[in-house]
Amino acid sequence: MHLTRPDLAIIQNWIKPSSRVLDLGCGNGELLYFLQEQKQVHGYGLEIDDQKITECIAKGVNVIEQNLDDGLSNFKDQSYDMVVMTQALQAMKRPDLMLEEMLRVGKECIVTFPNFAYWRCRFYLAVKGEMPVSKSLPHTWYNTPNIHLSTFRDFEQLCQSRNLRIIDRAVGNSEHESHWATNMWPNLFGEVAIYRVTR
């Protein structure tokens, strides 16, 4: 059993067996399915896509239809060991408030998002003079759900300003390209930013 997305393969290492996990924007339930089969994790995924909700149900992943922009007020303080949000923070109305909310509900949180300072993005913008379109950012500027794009550095500044502690940082590249340079200069060579954060 393996995970198809490289960012999921990395973050599953950060989740302890038998922990309580909330996966915000859980998609087709790939991560939760892996965690419940391999690590006896008890989890719920929140999702709004009809098709993906059905896929979760079909594979026996607990999924709850909920719009994340409405907040997590239906979950109690510190009721989960880990709150995960992969590739969705940049699509939130207020990523900063979402991050705070994640750490209210969870003891720790994991977020992954596309790094807008990735060299291909920079190159695209610098040379073409257009908003970058790539495999990890496939939309055009006018229809993209990614309304709050940021970088490794931006995110770390946000954490610092909110007194949030970064426990782990990793770099996810879509083609599994693990180059020494990605870890040395993630802001330039990292395509996907992966963080584990606590208060």
Binding site: I53, C56, I64, E65, S79
Partner: peptide, 19 residues
């Protein structure tokens, strides 16, 4: 229905919900 769902997640029961 969401009241029930919230009570179930709080109780740690297995639940899926769709509107």
């Amino acid at each position: 229905s969401e009241e029930i769902v919230n009570a179930l997640t709080e109780a740690g029961r297995h639940v899926s919900y769709a509107c």
